[in-house]
Deep mutational scan, measured.
Amino acid sequence: MPVRRGHVAPQNTFLDTIIRKFEGQSRKFIIANARVENCAVIYCNDGFCELCGYSRAEVMQRPCTCDFLHGPRTQRRAAAQIAQALLGAEERKVEIAFYRKDGSCFLCLVDVVPVKNEDGAVIMFILNFEVVMEKDMVGSPAHDTNHRGPPTSWLAPGRAKTFRLKLPALLALTARESSVRSGGAGGAGAPGAVVVDVDLTPAAPSSESLALDEVTAMDNHVAGLGPAEERRALVGPGSPPRSAPGQLPSPRAHSLNPDASGSSCSLARTRSRESCASVRRASSADDIEAMRAGVLPPPPRHASTGAMHPLRSGLLNSTSDSDLVRYRTISKIPQITLNFVDLKGDPFLASPTSDREIIAPKIKERTHNVTEKVTQVLSLGADVLPEYKLQAPRIHRWTILHYSPFKAVWDWLILLLVIYTAVFTPYSAAFLLKETEEGPPATECGYACQPLAVVDLIVDIMFIVDILINFRTTYVNANEEVVSHPGRIAVHYFKGWFLIDMVAAIPFDLLI
């Protein structure tokens, strides 16, 4: 008679799926529990143990900040960024110097990925580790590398530091407007667009060049630039800015003055950032001319202004700041037409079709709590990747769950009947059967004279019903998954307890 339990259901295979997918890609990662103190490590794979030199037993239950890997060259700011990422709910990448158990130093890129439950609360953290440099290539500990984003994938490793954006290309926007319009339909740009040429040739750093990471940081200074100062900065030398009595002219307006920039070969870094931020506020060169004239017309309804409409929906549905990093990277690809469009465009503009998908598509409701890094690593669709929660398995109709209350009560009843059979069957065979043979035949009273025979008949009927119930009862397979398919249940029961239950259900007393 089957006594099969499996009270692990309803099970959740999400954690096993993450481990299996990460292991298949030869990654070095740990999984931490966000619900406990210090976000203790609950799993670390073999790749991480080989990377740091510690065994799994030495890593388990330690804080996922990996303070046991810190050393003299470990930056405090990087460690603080990892700790801050564990307090938030967004994906974050941090470069930090770690030390192995043998004392060797290596520069590592740590990717902190939160995993949320159905309520939107962070319950786990996945920390992925990628070695960037070994100890002989690690720089000085005073050099802070965590304020910069990861290198873009479309640049060669040897040319990542030679990417320079020439400031004269930004200063000569109005001069290039006529050349853009003359391109017409034969050019790649839309009317009114501004073409910015980027020099990728390796050259020595000069005062006129600005690194790509500095251009990325310009967006942080746009908020500090007032509207009046932006307007004066875009007017140009024809209309000098008016300053109040006793007030000095704005240095932001002076930063885009061609006369002032041409007199000296070098520009201050602050002026460069502010000038680029001011130019980015204009949607095209037409807006710059309109600002000089004193009238700013409404933005025209053409394809170039609607190019950012799908980007707005993608940004609203993005799951991490990696989408913004990807957008900034692609927006700086050289030799393309940049349409400086305000994100607050007309909502009635139709979304044009684009061959290049900048932001990841909208994630469906079932995966809105899973970050983009987890979705990318697992390579699963929205119909396959579940949320991290207890999910009731989908069972067929008329199927009994093996952990249901009805099955528990039924098993206790069958257990009592088995005990009765084990006690009274030998007793009936030894004593009652002998008395029946010696006594007179009682054929007239039937079952009324033999109450134990009636009980034995009921017990046999219950055993037959138990066999039928076992054909529709779920079970737990070797992978700790609840199986509810009727065919698989029948095959599993035939290979197991079916023969024993059938022999126990045969009414031998009635056959004798």
Score class of each variant (00 low, 15 high):
Pro2Asp: 05
Arg4Trp: 12
Asn12Ala: 15
Asn12Met: 13
Thr13Phe: 08
Asp16Asn: 14
Ile19Gly: 01
Gly24Gln: 13
Lys28Glu: 01
Lys28Gly: 06
Ile31Ser: 01
Ile31Cys: 04
Ala32Lys: 01
Asn33Ala: 07
Asn33Met: 06
Asn33Thr: 09
Asn33Ile: 05
Ala34Gln: 05
Ala34Ser: 13
Ala34Glu: 01
Val36His: 08
Glu37Ala: 14
Ala40Met: 15
Ile42Ser: 01
Cys44Pro: 01
Asn45Met: 01
Phe48Leu: 01
Phe48Thr: 01
Cys49Tyr: 01
Leu51Phe: 05
Ser55Pro: 06
Glu58Met: 06
Arg62Cys: 07
Asp67Ala: 08
His70Ala: 06
Gly71Thr: 01
Thr74Trp: 01
Thr74Cys: 01
Gln84Ala: 13
Ala85Thr: 12
Gly88Leu: 14
Gly88Lys: 14
Ala89Leu: 08
Phe106Trp: 04
Cys108Thr: 11
Leu109Phe: 15
Leu109Arg: 09
Val110Asp: 01
Val113Trp: 15
Lys116Leu: 08
Lys116Tyr: 10
Asn128Asp: 14
Met133Ile: 12
Glu134His: 14
Lys135Ser: 14
Asp136Thr: 11
Ser140Val: 07
Ala142Arg: 07
Thr145Gly: 08
His147Glu: 08
Pro150His: 09
Ser153Val: 04
Leu155Met: 06
Ala156Phe: 15
Gly158Gln: 15
Gly158Glu: 05
Ala160Val: 15
Lys166Asn: 05
Lys166Asp: 08
Leu171Pro: 13
Leu173Arg: 13
Leu173Trp: 14
Glu177Ser: 14
Ser182Phe: 05
Gly184Lys: 06
Gly186Tyr: 11
Gly187Tyr: 06
Ala190Thr: 14
Asp197Leu: 01
Asp197Cys: 01
Val198Arg: 02
Val198Cys: 11
Leu200Lys: 15
Ala203Arg: 14
Ala204Gly: 06
Ala204Tyr: 01
Glu208Lys: 01
Ser209Thr: 15
Ser209Asn: 14
Leu212Met: 05
Asp213Met: 12
Ala223Phe: 04
Gly224Ser: 14
Pro227Ala: 05
Pro237Trp: 04
Pro237Val: 13
Gly238Ala: 04
Pro241Ile: 12
Arg242Tyr: 15
Pro245Tyr: 14
Gln247Gly: 12
Pro249Trp: 09
Ser255Thr: 09
Asp259Cys: 11
Asp259Trp: 14
Ser264Met: 12
Ser266Cys: 07
Ala268Arg: 14
Glu274Asp: 15
Asp286Tyr: 08
Ile288Tyr: 15
Ile288Asp: 13
Ala290Phe: 01
Ala290Leu: 03
Met291Phe: 11
Ala293Gln: 08
Gly294Trp: 04
Val295Gly: 12
Pro299Trp: 05
Pro300Ala: 11
Arg301Asn: 09
His302Arg: 09
Arg312Val: 11
Leu316Ser: 05
Asn317His: 09
Asn317Asp: 15
Ser318Ala: 08
Ser320Val: 14
Asp321Ser: 14
Thr329Ala: 13
Pro334Trp: 01
Ile336Gln: 14
Thr337Ser: 14
Asp342Ala: 04
Gly345Ala: 07
Asp346Leu: 08
Asp346Ile: 10
Ala350Phe: 10
Ser351Leu: 05
Thr353Arg: 14
Glu357Gln: 07
Ile358Trp: 13
Ala360Tyr: 14
Glu365Ser: 07
Asn369Val: 07
Ser379Cys: 05
Gly381Glu: 08
Leu385Asn: 05
